[in-house]
Structures are given as C-alpha cells and as structure tokens.
Design a protein around this nucleic acid. Structure first.
Lengths: 233, 233
DNA sequence: CTATAATTCGAACGAACGTTCGAATGAGAG
DNA sequence: CTCTCATTCGAACGTTCGTTCGAATTATAG
C-alpha cells in the first residue's frame, strides 16, 4: 500500500541538467516510444512487453518510471493536450478579429495534429480508455479546449450577427479536423497550412460568415475556396 | 487442420423458419450483444468471456457459431457496412438532382448512424483492428462507400461548375458525420433529419454550391442555415 | 577510495486471455 | 421408442497479460 507511492518520482541531486532531470528526459523518451506503439496497436492491444521492447528497456525497468500502463497513457494524453492548448493561447494573444481567431484555432490544431500525428491519434482514439481518476482529469482538459473553441464561435456569431448552434458547429469542426488521422497521407495530401485554409474555408462559409478571401499567416494571397492542387484519389 | 473448417455453418433440416434458420437467428442475437460489448470496451479490450456473458451463452458454446473473435468482428462490420450501402443505393434510385443526392447521402448516413449507433461506433473505431484477409475485405467495402460519395461530389461539381478537391471534401464530410459517435446525446441533440439538414447546409454552402434553401424530405420549409434549436451546452 | 542513492533487470507471480475437446443435452424423423 | 444430428457446456490447454521483488549494476557525493 505504502510501497506503491514511493515510485512517485524520486529526486535527483544535481539540478544542473539542461532540459529537466535525467529522470525526466528518460521518461520523455519512453513516452515517445510508447506513443508510437499505442498508435499502432491501440492502448488495450499494446502490451507492456511491446512497450518495453520499443523503449529498449527491460519490462521491470519501466516500472521505475511510471506505476502502471494506465498512468503511462495518462501522461501521454495530458502532455499532448496541455501543449496544444498552451500553443493556442500564445498564438491567440496577438489576434483580435473573430474570424482570424477561428482560422488560427484551426491552423494551430492541424499543425500540431500533423506534426504529432501519432500522439494525436492516441488522443483521439483512446478517448475513453482511461478510468475514473485519470479519465476525468483528461476529460476536464478536453472540455477546456472545447470551451475555448465555443468561445471563439460565440464572438464570431455576435460580430457577424449570425445565429447557429455553437455546439453543433464546433463539434462538426472538430470532426472535420480530427478525422484526418484516419486518412492523412503526407505524400498525397496538402500540408497543415493549406489544409487549414481549406477547412476554414468550408467551415466559415458553411456557417454563413462569408468573407471574400483572407488566410491567416499563409503566403499566397487570398484564395478562400478549395485549392485544386489535390486530385480526387 | 480440416477440423477447423467444419465449423463453417452447419445446415438445418427444416427451412420453414420465418426469418432465416434458427442458427442464423441465434447468431444474429450474438452479434447484437457483441456489438454492445465491442462498443463499450473496444475490440481488443473485450474478452471472449465478456462476449459470452453478454450473450448468455457459455464460452465454449460461442465457438459453435463463429470460429474466432476476429471473425465475429468481421461479421459485425461486414453486415453493418453492407446494409448502409444497400439502403443508400435504394434511396438514391429515385433522385437525380446532384445536390439532393448529396443531401440524401448525408441523411442516409446519419439516420443509419444514429439508429445503429453502437454498430457504427464499432465500425468507425475498430477500423484497422482486423488483419490480412478479414481486414482487406472490409477495406474494400469501405472503399466502395467512399467511391460512391466521391461520385456524387463529382456530379455536383460538374453541374455547378465548381472546382475543389473531391477527396478533401468527401473526407471532411465523413469527418463531420462520423465524429458524432464521440458526442451525440439524444437528450440534447437534434434527430437525424435535423442534423443531416444542418450538416448538409454547412457542407454544401462551404464547398461553394450555395442553394437558397431546400431540404431533402423534411417537413419544415427551406431553412438551409443552422437551426437555433440547440443551445451551446 | 567508500558509502549512498539512482537505475536496471531476470525471474517469477497469479490472473486472464483465445481456443479446443469430448461428453452431455436437446429436439425432430422414422 | 430409437437414431441422428444440432446445440451447449465444463474443464482444461498453452500463452500472454500487468505487475512485483530482490538482487545486481551504475553513478555521484564525500
């Protein structure tokens, strides 16, 4: 009973290590490898032996860094979600126009999604894999992210004098964006910036707030309609 | 080796049973219960013992009806996909207007999705759980469904003289629609017809084919914009 | 150096996994 | 009734699961 708690993060004596302690850096490596395995086999389908093999560490050795497989998934999800929200907040700071803020949200989401595709797949796919304590904490972070987007939508509706269900709109938008983990192929599909522009175009025009052509932070002029650079299959 | 093949569907003597043989009906019951379990715990997370308990049949007894857990998932996915395609083809028969055909596609998808929410979640979520033979057959059916939608999109583009990537548009649409398994709550959200109208509105307007108000097979006039019946949480 | 704490791992635990087998039931046909 | 075949199940199989433990190894402080 008390023996389980002692695994909760031992100290290091010298804090002189550049980017977190040796412990933290090793743990981060393990998380990265575990993310790949969870992505390929799913949380339930990945065994601790798979994870230890991927990390190049013994099965027993893993338990020095985290106390259970469930906690490992929790750490991955928490870190991924926290990071994407932090980046979003930072980028939103300088922008006040509601439409641009939504475009920025979409860009931030897709950029992070594609740059960390495996982690985001684990986040999307293993949504309800965590139980009780772990699950509710992740759910809270997800809720926060959702609320930010609803907030942006409400600003947008007000200034454009539009009326639609923010819930339905936001969830449709999330669907569009998150679904890419099932189909995105970097050799066929456009990059995050292009994709964000296209999805923002569909969404904003679809929701009624038609603006004739402005993109957020992308070089090529103001084409808001879908690009023709992609062929259908 | 030869003993495994003998489980491949024994015969019944009297074909006088109303809806398929006794064997078929019992199997269908098992599939229905298994769908619920797969939906709740995931394919990998559901054990054969879970499935047998849900069906009220002994663990060993299950193997009289199918030869492996993988085959069970295959049967569920195959049936679900085949049914939704069959219904779609039937409904598309009478309609020739490209926009209406897309609206019908969306309506058919969402109606079936919400009426068979658990099966569709299993279909969406356990997308790549099947290996080799089973997996490629399901993938082929999914591809067929995708191609139908691309076909509708191309018709639509041609008659409206629009230019956009059908691939990207169709996959965004699928994202919007399929994501609902993560959020739909029948006590809060609109029914399939209403939802289909709203999503079709966003999508069609978003893609540039603006039509001022027609719904497919829904009573209330021609509002194409999002309804205000839903509050944001 | 020695002492102390951080880190790693082989071996094993009991539990749960998917699947098999042969015997026990059930029911309809003659 | 008997015979036959469809259906069910208890018990067990070999394997893999997540986790634990104590000893071995490595690194740092004094």
């Amino acid at each position: 009973m008390a023996s389980a708690a002692k695994l909760a993060r031992p100290r290091r004596r010298s804090p002189a290590v550049p980017n977190g302690s040796r412990f933290d850096r090793r743990l981060a490596k393990i998380l990265a490898h575990a993310t790949e395995v969870f992505c390929e086999k799913g949380y339930a389908g990945a065994s601790m032996r798979d994870l230890s093999r991927a990390s190049g560490m013994s099965l027993a050795g893993m338990y020095y860094y985290f106390e259970s497989k469930e906690r490992l998934l929790y750490l991955i999800q928490k870190h991924t979600f926290t990071t994407i929200i932090a980046r979003l907040r930072q980028r939103l700071e300088g922008v006040s126009d509601p439409e641009q803020r939504i475009r920025l949200f979409i860009l931030n989401h897709l950029e992070y999604f594609l740059a960390n595709q495996k982690a985001m797949k684990v986040l999307s796919h293993e949504d309800d894999a965590l139980k009780n304590g772990f699950g509710s904490e992740i759910a809270a972070v997800k809720r926060e992210y959702y609320r930010i987007c609803v907030g942006l939508m409400d600003e947008f509706k007000e200034v454009r004098r539009l009326e639609f269900s923010s819930r339905m709109a936001v969830l449709s938008l999330f669907g569009m964006m998150n679904w890419i983990y099932t189909w995105y192929n970097p050799r066929v599909d456009a990059d995050a910036g292009e994709l964000a522009g296209q999805m923002a175009g569909i969404f904003l025009r679809g929701v009624g707030g038609h603006s004739k052509g402005n993109r957020v932070r992308t070089g090529d002029g103001g084409r808001t309609n879908l690009g023709s650079s992609l062929r259908s299959e």
